[in-house]
Design a protein around this nucleic acid. Structure first.
Lengths: 334, 334
DNA sequence: AAATTGTTTGAAACCGGTTGCAAGAATCTG
DNA sequence: CAGATTCTTGCAACCGGTTTCAAACAATTT
């Protein structure tokens, strides 16, 4: 049976309040009392019940980590960093796998039942409304990899996806590709929409370049592969901007299967720069999201809004950069 | 402000006990009372506070999901399945990232502070002692991908790694390889030890085959690659049995970098069969762990031992099978 | 009609902590 | 040294639920 505060109080011969205070930083206790209590607690192997105390304090230090990207290797890195950073900040991640579900109400209710202090939404595909449902219920929320907007509706940490689209377009244009296709993620995903917008903007500055779009079913290998297999049956573009790295790898796979050489016959550029993209077998040229600082920042932001009722929504944007590897041809001389 | 049981009781004009009972399956309440209460609750948007009730019931339905494998893509699939299955079983995963740490005490204490009902340890590298520390503290634990032993000390769900080692050896022998090396995971990992044992057992039946071992620093791409780069500088084997798929991919990468063709020049066989191994770019021959049924079984097992004090440790073993793809040469005719 | 049994309900105690309050002890002030 | 001030401590109420118990009531038996 686990020891309780009362056991410690009895053993140390003090009141229960005294024990409680001994474990509370900054509480009004004499050093002597604290020593006595901690000694007794140690001897009994007592540690306070965080959930019981949450009843009165109203804080659990539990944070919902909600995602629907459990098939994208990029998100393994995301989970690794989030769990580490949250732990370091004294918070505990309660993991929620959204898989197919896109109705926020059920998740919201579950989070409320477990009295999480806040929610981190780690998803690049869910609409803003999803995060907003949490905010509307008064739940502190940070949307990581969410959509940026001039007047953010919830706290967002991410990149400017429109700019990422522009960067992709610029990169392809610079290398002299004249016919390019955006092999995008799901049409409904905000990242898809934004990157498409940026890509088109940039392309409108190069009227000599023929531009097209195709949508994948998901950010997944299979989607990248099947979409590319489909594209192969039509007249091919010279280069493909893929919605993310895992789509790129699927596309690469389809191309190699058909003996189409990369980058000699067609070029590929992705987004994310997950660890795997640097593997020599893959060697993908891609637009890098700086996830370390992003995630650190998301956790900081969460920590700062947790107990601050009227924090005003803030967007923290990070800039991407191009990581040149072996799937695009070099910039032509002169 | 969140609604409480009292709000509902007031609104419905009944006692607090009545409200509590209305939300408890099988409690002694008249249908009429229940209807009245649920109606009031619905109107107020009330949902019970799971943590408050855990105080009296002693059950939180929280399950610690503890792992130190956050860099191995195989485990993304593992997390995906575990979170889904746990959710379906009405349990909530509290994720713990062990990263470097290997002392169970801190994690144990954290789990106790949050009153988790049980712990699932998802790791193929931690020693049995780690799981035992939880058991000794009276914490229900299931070690997934843990070490099998004739008399299990904690509940284990896994494969027979000795048999997997034998299977690898047999597979290589059948294909006529005469010089083989086990490119293993970390020397201290139980999986390494067991697979090595099985591999050696099988090889002792083929004295004509020359056998060797090398250890990687981790189950990771980088470890596979650097270990293989090192092996390349010495006289090479004809085939390599790699400790897992991600090691295999690292090894493949090193080989291709050096223009060594697979399977023409050397063969590679891995363990796990993660999704990625079937990608055409990789096309890895490997020994498949049936993780879907394994994880389902682990969650069932957890559910069954959660509230059963004296469940006796049980090992649930699953059998592996060979998935033939393109990194081993075929069985010679005749 | 009385006695027995079963069902439904509310009061009150409890789960393991925290905290406002007041009283007592210790320290400071002039 | 008396009086004012600050620290320290225990009591008791409370957080949001559950559960034991006994009372009230209904249904059944004799």
């Amino acid at each position: 049976m686990r020891r309780t505060l009362k056991d410690v109080a009895d053993k140390a011969g003090v009141s229960r309040s005294a024990v409680s205070r001994a474990f509370t930083e900054g509480a009004s206790v004499s050093p002597e009392m604290r020593r006595k209590v901690l000694k007794a607690a140690h001897e009994l192997g007592y540690s306070p019940n965080a959930l019981a105390s949450s009843l009165t304090t109203g804080r659990t230090k539990l944070v919902g980590l909600v995602s629907n990207n459990f098939r994208n290797p990029f998100f393994l890195e995301v989970f690794d960093l989030f769990t580490k950073e949250l732990q370091d900040a004294g918070l505990r991640p309660l993991l929620v796998n959204l898989s197919n579900e896109t109705e926020p109400q059920d998740s919201l209710r579950m989070m409320q039942q477990y009295s999480v202090d806040g929610v981190i939404l780690a998803s690049s595909t869910l609409p803003v409304g999803f995060a907003r449902a949490f905010r509307d219920a008064g739940m502190p929320i940070v949307h990581a990899f969410g959509r940026f907007s001039g007047r953010p509706q919830v706290h967002v940490v991410g990149i400017d996806n429109v700019e990422a689209g522009r960067m992709a377009g610029r990169t392809l244009a610079e290398r002299g590709y004249r016919k390019v296709t955006f092999l995008a993620g799901p049409e409904a995903a905000t990242t898809t929409q934004d990157r498409l917008q940026g890509f088109r903007e940039e392309m409108s500055r190069h009227p000599e370049i023929e531009t097209d779009v195709a949508f994948g079913e998901a950010y997944s290998f299979v989607a990248g592969r099947t979409t590319m297999l489909d594209l192969i049956r039509h007249p091919m573009a010279e280069a493909y901007f893929c919605g993310d790295d895992v789509l790129s790898i699927g596309a690469l796979s389809a191309l190699r299967e058909h003996g189409i050489r990369v980058p000699d016959d067609v070029g590929i550029i992705g987004v994310n720069d997950m660890e795997m993209s640097s593997w020599e077998l893959i060697d993908l040229t891609t637009i890098r999201q700086p996830i370390r600082p992003m995630i650190r920042s998301a956790v900081d932001l969460m920590a700062s809004i947790l107990y601050d009722e009227d924090a005003v929504p803030e967007a923290r944007l990070f800039s991407c950069d191009l990581v040149e590897r072996g799937t695009l041809r070099p910039i032509p001389k002169g």
